[in-house]
Design a protein around this nucleic acid. Structure first.
Length: 488
DNA sequence: TGAAATGTTGGGGCG
DNA sequence: ACGCCCCAACATTTC
């Protein structure tokens, strides 16, 4: 019986996995994970993602053991290609199957890998498991150009129609010789987990990486979040969002499975809540669309004229205060601490934290992008870059430069009782609702009664919101006047 | 998927 | 009864 390698990447699941199905059809299956972060460049996982990767691999291996009595072979390598060639020889495999990835470095690597494997007489096939729509299939009907604006992009996707068919877990004949013990030691040798100090306690308490955990999240969302999603998704203190992002990022569940399950739960009815949730999946697709068609956006603004934006020198002290949730602005600090503790941040707060860094603190968006990349368990190059460039106003469908969030008003509007702030910034927990989003404005006796001593147990704001807003408006307006005057 | 300034309207207090 | 002012409430515009 021939042997096929299932080259595992960000498709850490058994169900709806085209590469796995293809491998199982071909013959005996070698589930193989190659750890070669150096080769992935900008897409190499950050610290929080490495924690997730460890546990997701462990979960997948456990599933393979329980269902098929096999495990995952792990190779630590400088590059995937030689590892694949060695593995093919070792297992006497004549075919390799994988699911596609879309970061520029990954696309380049996969092209070389595919060509070389085939030149060596091996069968090499890739499939789509990560997206509802391959980026190259959605183009402007007339010009055949990629989209730069979300709404027409998503309309074109919907016009193309979401394929709802999903693949069952295949019957699988494993190769002999893969066992849980050697998997466990190989996984440990990858050294993906933090130590000295172990900062992952909050992650462990929050998440269950793996296919089962992904489905638990989805079912919880359908039961508790979806019904009021359209309004509730804006409230960071409540649990109306799906929190599926890390599971989707690691391919523990496919967007197709999510769509199919939600439609079955809603009896096929697409009301406002369902439509809005689907459009959030659409934003994920849009990120991959942009990353594929405009790969330079990983480091540079989509619009090249923005590369000359006159950022002032980076204030390291302010940057660290932002990273650690010590800006003195409660909503932003709550968000940054939620991120540090759980590896995830509510989208409403992501926008506010990003706006403060880029606009009020005039810090290059790449600094924020880098911090998010390292601390988010759901960090996807596509979504992260899209989000930061959206905030900075230099990306696709970007927020205009004058859109500057006021984190006090945003807090009062979307966290009216301060539940979110109190949870993550306990120093402020005893302040009345009226002042919880702006402790610096509270009467001294109110602060004292609440045990808030600014400058001692909670910082004064590191920027004056009104003054820094005015400064950002001026800098951005001047830049627009000078640099953006000539189109194209 | 903004905030703040400015403009408009209409009710109520008051001389 | 009337004009005037104030200002909340809402709409529009500007950044």
């Amino acid at each position: 019986m021939p042997v096929a390698i299932w080259w595992i990447r960000r498709d850490l699941r058994l169900a709806d996995n085209p590469a796995l199905v293809a491998a199982a059809r071909h013959g005996q299956v070698v589930p193989l994970y190659i750890h070669a972060p150096e080769e992935e460049g900008e897409a190499a996982p950050g610290a929080a993602a490495r924690w997730w990767l460890h546990h997701s691999l462990a979960a997948l291996a456990a599933d393979l053991t329980a269902r098929f009595g096999t495990s995952i072979a792990i190779i630590r390598a400088e590059a995937a290609l030689p590892a694949l060639l060695t593995a093919a020889k070792q297992w006497e495999a004549d075919a390799i199957f994988w699911n596609r990835q879309y970061a520029p470095s990954q696309i380049r690597r996969d092209e070389t890998v595919k060509a070389t494997l085939r030149a060596n007489g091996l069968r090499a096939e890739s499939s789509n498991s990560h997206l509802l729509f391959e980026p190259w299939t959605i183009l402007h009907p007339g010009s055949q150009e990629p989209f730069r604006v979300f709404t027409p992009f998503w309309k074109a996707c919907q016009a193309a129609g979401i394929d709802q068919t999903t693949l069952p877990v295949p019957e699988l004949t494993p190769v002999a010789g893969l066992d849980p013990n050697s998997f466990a030691s190989a996984l440990a040798a990858l050294d993906l987990l933090p130590h000295h100090p172990d900062w992952a306690g909050g992650l462990r308490a929050t998440w269950q990486p793996g296919e089962a955990g992904a489905w638990t999240r989805l079912e919880r969302f359908i039961n508790e979040g979806l019904r009021h999603y359209h309004v509730g998704r804006n409230l960071p203190g409540e649990r109306y969002t799906s929190q599926l992002s890390p599971h989707l990022s690691f391919g523990e569940i496919s967007p197709r499975q999510v769509v199919q399950r939600i439609l079955s739960a809603s009896a096929g009815v697409i009301d406002g809540d369902v439509a809005h949730f689907f459009s959030e999946l659409g934003w994920r697709e849009f990120g991959f669309h942009l990353l594929y068609h405009f790969p330079h956006t990983v480091r540079e603004p989509l619009d090249p004229r923005w590369t000359s934006f006159p950022w002032p020198p980076i204030d390291q002290e302010q940057l660290v205060a932002w990273q650690r949730g010590r800006t003195g602005i409660p909503l932003v600090d709550a968000g940054m601490r939620e991120l540090w503790h759980t590896g995830w941040m509510h989208n409403r707060t992501r926008m506010n934290a990003a706006s403060l860094l880029v606009k009020n603190l005039l810090t290059p968006w790449q600094e924020g992008e880098r911090w998010f990349w390292d601390t988010l368990v759901d960090a996807d190059l596509a979504s992260n870059v899209l989000g930061w460039q959206w905030t900075a106003g230099c990306g696709a469908d970007a927020a205009p430069y004058f859109r500057i969030f006021n984190p006090v008003l945003q807090g009062e509007r979307f966290d009216p009782h301060g539940d979110y702030v109190r949870r993550w910034v306990p120093e402020l927990a005893r302040l009345p609702d009226r002042w919880v989003h702006q402790p610096w404005s509270a009467p001294a006796e109110v602060r004292e009664a609440a045990g808030v001593r600014l400058g001692e147990n909670y910082p004064w704001p590191i920027v004056d919101l009104a003054a820094s807003r005015a400064r950002a408006l001026e800098v951005f307006a001047q830049f627009k006047e000078r640099a953006l005057r000539f189109r194209g």
